[in-house]
């Protein structure tokens, strides 16, 4: 399923056709520009707030244009929240989850497709079932397991449990099965062992799939909320996404929304940048991992 979605190639071909109704095209542009603007407005507004002084933020009517306090707010946000440390933690988690899961699932998919071994069906079934139960469903008990292992407040605890999912394995398995058998046979005739075949042929061929998986997993690792909230309880191990919660001004506090929005901007920038920079692979990853 979902394979019938338009690929970039069909989109391009569609655009080549002669345009008949220009009126239609005009409406389309208007609607798309309106949608894009509507989508961008909250982000723009948040950015604007992050550049204003406290008194500008709290006076009505709201002023929807940037002001001069940008540097002051970001510096304040950086110091108050140990932003540097939290962003580093988030980067470690996002990269750890992405790279770890890619490696693990590449290896297991390789074993499942290119080897015949006893217990293969059991292994396959075991991995398959994990598709069904996302982390939030096993909240308390996964925490207990992690604490038994002594992994609370560690990078191991933050990353490894998030790798227990089958999406990557399935993506690589599907892909390996489309590779002609003759490649592996030729490799064997040339005297190449399995690991050499994996390294020199399969991995180079899998680059696009790895990139697609990387974008999805990086965003997932960076943005995950529930897991780091449970598994860490010291400020040094907090990730950026959960750190922000403590900076939201509550009713009894000074309404420093400008600082809160500066934090929000810093936290959302990296995953959004990864999506924008790797957009082609992002779309591929979205389609292939979600079914």
């Amino acid at each position: 399923m979902a394979r019938t979605l338009a690929q970039p190639a069909t989109l391009a071909a569609a655009q080549e056709r002669p345009r008949r109704r220009d009126w239609h095209g005009f409406t389309a542009h208007v609607i798309l520009i309106a949608s894009v603007a509507l989508l961008a407005f909250p982000l723009y507004y948040a950015f604007v707030i992050s550049t204003q002084t406290l008194s500008q933020v709290t006076t009505t009517p709201p002023k929807p244009w940037p002001s001069t306090a940008l540097l002051a707010n970001y510096a304040e946000a950086w110091h108050r929240a140990q932003m540097g440390r939290m962003l580093v933690n988030s980067a470690i988690v996002a990269l750890g989850v992405a790279i770890g899961k890619i490696v693990i699932s590449l290896l297991s998919a390789f074993a499942i497709v290119y080897f015949d071994f006893r217990g293969k069906n059991v292994v396959f079934w075991m991995i398959f079932v994990t598709l069904m139960l996302p982390v939030p469903v096993r909240i308390v008990s996964t925490y207990q397991v992690v604490s038994v292992l002594g992994w609370v407040n560690t990078y191991w605890g933050l990353t490894v449990p998030l790798m227990a999912s089958a999406t990557g394995t399935f993506l690589f398995r599907q892909f390996f099965r489309t590779i002609p058998d003759s490649l592996a046979e030729a490799a064997q005739l040339d005297g190449a062992g399995p690991m050499r075949f994996l390294w020199t042929i399969l991995i180079p061929l899998s680059k696009a799939n790895m990139a697609a998986l990387f974008v999805i997993l990086f965003v997932y690792g960076w943005n995950d909320y529930l897991w780091p909230l449970m598994i860490t309880n010291t400020p040094e191990m907090r990730t950026a996404v959960i750190g922000i919660e403590t900076l939201v001004p509550r009713t009894s506090q000074l309404p420093e929304w400008n600082v809160a929005m500066a934090v929000a901007m810093m936290v959302l920038a990296p995953p959004v940048a990864v999506i924008v920079a790797m957009q082609r692979w992002f779309v591929k990853g979205l389609i292939e991992t979600e079914k």
Partner: peptide, 9 residues
Amino acid sequence: WPYGIAPAI
């Protein structure tokens, strides 16, 4: 791009 924004943010 909004896909990259955490639900909390």
